Simulated assay, not measured.
Amino acid sequence: MSHKISNTYNETMGGAKEKIGHAAHNEHLAGSGAAQKAQAQANQQNQKAQTHAKGVGHNIEGQTQKTAGQVTNDPALEGRGHANDTLGDVQRNF
């Protein structure tokens, strides 16, 4: 979650620098702000992709555990499978 806060901060500050730079006719400040904003947006997309990939992994693990639990008649394993599958859904939709 701290990455999300940091990226939001940098995106906001970069956008503010960019606008102030344009208003003050300071292209160096405007360019610096645009770069900061773009980097924050790229970092945020990267974090989302990583979280989504973890979610897919938990979905696969959960489906495997549920199936193995049903085949071996192991309700605890099946329950862990449901939990991992739900965790994966949450991560993929975050």
Rank of each mutant, 00 (worst) to 15 (best):
M1W: 05
H3R: 12
H3C: 06
I5P: 09
N7I: 02
T8P: 12
E11C: 01
T12A: 06
T12V: 10
G14C: 02
A16L: 13
A16Y: 08
A16F: 05
E18M: 04
I20G: 01
I20E: 05
G21T: 11
A23L: 12
A24L: 13
E27F: 00
H28F: 14
H28K: 15
A30M: 06
A30W: 02
A30K: 05
G31N: 15
G31F: 05
G33Q: 04
G33Y: 03
A34H: 12
A34T: 15
A35P: 14
Q36Y: 00
Q36N: 08
K37W: 03
K37G: 02
K37T: 10
A38Q: 06
Q39V: 15
A40H: 03
A42R: 13
Q45N: 08
Q45F: 07
Q45W: 01
N46Y: 08
N46C: 06
N46Q: 14
Q47K: 07
K48E: 02
Q50G: 00
T51F: 03
T51W: 01
A53H: 05
G57A: 12
H58G: 04
N59L: 07
I60Y: 00
I60V: 15
Q63T: 13
Q63R: 11
Q65S: 05
G69M: 07
G69T: 12
G69Y: 02
Q70H: 15
V71P: 14
V71C: 01
A76N: 13
E78P: 15
G79K: 14
A83G: 03
A83T: 09
N84Y: 02
D85I: 08
T86I: 07
D89H: 06
D89P: 11
Q91F: 00
N93A: 04
